[in-house]
Nucleic acid binder design. Sequence first.
DNA 1: CCTACCGATCGGTAGG
DNA 2: CCTACCGATCGGTAGG
Lengths: 199, 199
Amino acid sequence: MARPIAADHGEKRRAILAAAARLIADEGYGGASMSAIAAACGISKGNIYHYYPGKEALLFDILDTHLRALRDRVAAIRHESADPARQLRAIVTELLLAYEGADAEHAVQLNAMGALPQADQEALKSYQRDLLAQVRQRLEALAPAGVATDRGRMRALTMSVFALVNWHCQWDGRADAAARAAYGDLIARLVVGGLEALE
Amino acid sequence: MARPIAADHGEKRRAILAAAARLIADEGYGGASMSAIAAACGISKGNIYHYYPGKEALLFDILDTHLRALRDRVAAIRHESADPARQLRAIVTELLLAYEGADAEHAVQLNAMGALPQADQEALKSYQRDLLAQVRQRLEALAPAGVATDRGRMRALTMSVFALVNWHCQWDGRADAAARAAYGDLIARLVVGGLEALE
DNA sequence: CCTACCGATCGGTAGG
DNA sequence: CCTACCGATCGGTAGG
């Protein structure tokens, strides 16, 4: 009879993923060695290769898991208001809250995604496109008519919202949930108020 | 008699710096080898150690040169108007224009500055503080009274402006000068309009 | 014949 | 300004 998969298989896999994210965030992809990742988990380096065929697969799984979770969290928001300004605030706040406890994964996205082959990067960018669409949709509803139909400016505005959200960890990575919600509110006000000021 | 410094010493040093910035931007600090940097310059690896005592010194010089140039450019702006909104636009546009042709150095700042010892990072952050002060000063003049005296919110707003400026290369790194000026204008309008909407 | 690991070491390459 | 190397460590895999 075949031996069953160890009961802690999934748990250990998650531990490897978390340790790898932390080390790659701190040391970069090239600077984080498989040995160091293994040591951080209290296992042998060889043992990692039972869970992942190689270092690149580990990096991909970190980003795939992280970005899919972000997309799913934002897609699952039950908007309590039809007001696009409130919906925008709900989305950016949800992202800021999701980054709490995922700062390592977020840093890996910013500084190590380029280490993946182009095809893998494309697969990950589809999650990002879903997120961008959620934001752009609300911005289009909020923008003055002349701006909402300007594809170039709508792209710039959508990217600007992600700039604000994604940069937050750079200057307030240790913010608690209340501070994140307050910044989400600030971002939403800034963008909604700013949009009205565009011609 | 001591041998004079080669006529092309400075030129070669700059070539090493530019090649190192490009490779560290693309591969990360750990992934960019001294051999690869040397090969990109058409010199031997050992020759780099004639110009720099080590890899870290190279990284520091990339960032020191880049950030000092940014600070000096912004400090040298001759503001043609006393209007803080126009001054803010001039500052963010100057930064966006300075990033043109310095995308590698900018990327190194974002993804490899953490590889330096804390003391070196502090030295570099003093340039960043100068830049932040230039922006914060204008935001304080523009913000409603209740906001301008709120240190936490002023910090968040200042960091938000840098989020917008520093994130630009992520989605439009190949923008020409006109596109950069247009985005600087958009950022300034968004922030100035948004500030007025805060209580 | 399977999975789950270990200690040891592979061929190459890193920074210096 | 190069070749030739060093101690160590890299990502990845062997036998048991």
